[in-house]
């Protein structure tokens, strides 16, 4: 299973993004500055934005899902329970898992943003997709919930998962690193080797590497283990 970008370009006025590379099974992390084109790339990979040039080849991908940066854009149900049903899911199962069962009759937009994001991610992660694109999945989530979502992502045993995020400290186990720099998608490669070339690395990871710590990966336990080990 793989998604291959062959000189795929997205254009918006004078702005453009060029993407080349193959996304295989595993967890991929894409980082880049504000406005660098992460969401544009996510939309292009999901097939929701047409590319002006090049080709995008999906091999063996039978199902795909994109979680947009703002959960408001996904809403179709007028209550929290209806929202779950609109994804074909049983509200009781989903809502008891994320402790929102007592709010099942509320309108989704009356939830706090963190609760709304929790609801949205629970619906997205309840199903198995071959290609799962997550645009800023950790925004609005509290630290405990970020860790829970990271565990769920790390437990995905098959399929291609791509995270587009500015998160600074809480990550799942990541297999492959990418960055967008000066309108071009750049492949940094497999972790842990890719970490030393990560120009958008969060300050914490930069400092750990600069102080000679050897990181196996970037999940919270990997960071702490690296600190304790050396």
């Amino acid at each position: 299973m793989r998604l291959q970008l062959n000189a795929a370009h997205a254009n918006r006025g004078e702005w453009s993004l060029a993407a080349e590379g193959t996304f295989g099974e595993g967890v991929h992390l894409v980082s880049g500055d504000v406005g660098s084109g992460k969401s544009t790339l996510a939309l292009m990979m999901a097939g929701l934005l047409s590319h002006s040039d090049g080709t995008i080849v999906r091999e063996g991908i039978r199902s795909s899902m994109i979680s947009l940066q703002f959960p408001e854009y996904h809403l179709t149900g007028s209550t929290v329970a209806e929202e779950c049903r609109s994804w074909g899911l049983n509200p009781e199962t989903i809502l008891s898992e994320i402790m929102l069962l007592d709010k099942q009759h509320r309108a989704p937009l009356t939830l706090s943003r963190g609760e709304l994001k929790r609801l949205h991610l629970a619906c997205v992660l309840a199903k198995k997709y071959d290609l799962l694109l997550l645009d800023e999945p950790f925004s609005s989530l509290d630290a405990r919930e970020k860790e829970r979502i990271c565990r769920l992502i790390s437990q995905r045993t098959s399929g291609i998962t791509v995270l587009f995020t500015h998160e600074q400290t809480i990550f799942p186990l990541v297999d492959h690193l990418w960055e967008i720099e000066q309108n071009v998608l750049i492949e940094r490669g497999e972790l842990p080797d890719a970490l030393s070339h990560w120009s958008h690395a969060p300050v914490l990871i930069q400092k750990l590497i600069a102080s000679g710590k050897r990181l196996k990966n970037i999940s919270p336990s990997d960071l702490q283990e690296a600190v304790c080990r050396t």
């Binding site: 970020k146 860790e147 809480i170 400092k207 600190v227």
Partner: peptide, 13 residues
């Protein structure tokens, strides 16, 4: 003892 403790403090950097 909670996930709310800053990771950079936990890692002492």
């Amino acid at each position: 003892q909670t996930p709310f403790y800053p990771m950079s403090w936990r890692c002492k950097v």
